[in-house]
């Protein structure tokens, strides 16, 4: 029937526990019995935490907020993949029906020097904010804008800019990349604004500044494995990285500037 499938399964969770940034972490194992397959992955963690609290233990810290796949806050590395086994979803949209009875599930935080662990599975992604502050904007003060329909944008360009803008800043690209590179994240914003007429004025400045900040944050370098694209819950395309390379190479070599 068209309704809840309502199966229950037993799984074993091996979860990373780390008190704070400076201390070493280790795995902790928990048996989860009778987990409803209708539960989301995070709801399973809610149940685990509820149990830990009543047992007087420390619950597992993890980031999450909207739980509908758009805020980009949830960030678990599950069985060797960011956001777990399903393509195109965030951790909060992963449901237990993606797992089988008896599965052992290994859960780790995003691992990157630029994303230091705060506690357990929660990491600090403020490096992304700093990259945005370095150039991820159009310099237009409130009230300066002319009528919206004065700017004509070909539908294809608008759609492509939108596809790049769909990035939720979760950091799965960094987590997935064997080099912990943030190129997909940065290139999505560079692309969005490079594709639109509004972004032209600061086009060169923007890509130079954002890449400079990206490098300063300690992210790795892109080797075009495509893992980021494959794991991105919003399907951000590798084309954006090529576009950023192009923008950057142009701005630093061909462009008539110091």
């Amino acid at each position: 029937m068209a309704g809840s499938s309502g199966k229950n399964i037993n799984v074993t969770i091996k979860v990373w526990r780390q008190k704070n940034k400076n201390q070493k972490g280790q795995f902790e194992t928990h048996e989860m019995k009778g987990v409803s397959t209708d539960m989301s992955f995070l709801e399973m963690f809610d149940v685990l935490n509820e149990r830990l609290i009543t047992e007087g233990k420390d619950p597992v810290a993890f980031d999450h907020d909207c739980r509908e796949g758009i805020c980009g806050m949830c960030s678990m590395y599950i069985n060797g993949r960011p956001h777990g086994p399903k393509q195109g979803v965030t951790t909060c949209q992963l449901h237990m029906r993606s797992f089988k009875d008896g599965d052992i599930i290994v859960v780790e935080p995003w691992r990157s020097a630029a994303f230091p662990v705060i506690k357990d599975l929660a990491v600090d992604r403020s490096s992304f904010d700093r990259i945005m502050a370095a150039g991820g904007f159009v310099s237009v003060n409130t009230g300066n804008a002319k009528d919206a329909n004065n700017i004509l944008i070909p539908k294809d360009d608008a759609d492509e800019a939108f596809n790049a803008a769909a990035c939720i800043g979760c950091g799965a690209c960094v987590a997935a990349c064997k080099n912990a590179s943030a190129m997909l994240f940065v290139s999505a914003k560079v692309s969005q604004l490079a594709l639109l007429p509004q972004g032209q004025v600061e086009r060169e400045e923007r890509v130079l500044n954002m890449v400079k900040q990206m490098d300063a944050e300690g992210f790795g370098n892109c080797t075009n494995t495509g893992a980021c694209e494959a794991e991105c819950p919003k399907g951000i395309s590798l084309e954006n990285i090529a576009r950023m390379n192009r923008e950057y190479i142009h701005a630093s070599t061909i462009a008539n500037r110091k």
């Binding site: 904007f137 159009v138 237009v140 409130t142 009230g143 300066n144 804008a145 002319k146 009528d147 919206a148 329909n149 700017i151 004509l152 944008i153 070909p154 539908k155 608008a158 759609d159 800019a161 939108f162 803008a165 969005q192 604004l193 639109l196 509004q198 972004g199």
Partner: peptide
């Protein structure tokens, strides 16, 4: 109306028609 103007100026990719209008 000003809100739409402001957002478009910032590069918010609203849906568009084939003629390039919003």
């Amino acid at each position: 109306g000003n809100i739409i103007d402001q957002c478009v100026a910032q590069g918010v990719p609203f849906a568009r028609e084939y003629g390039g209008l919003l």
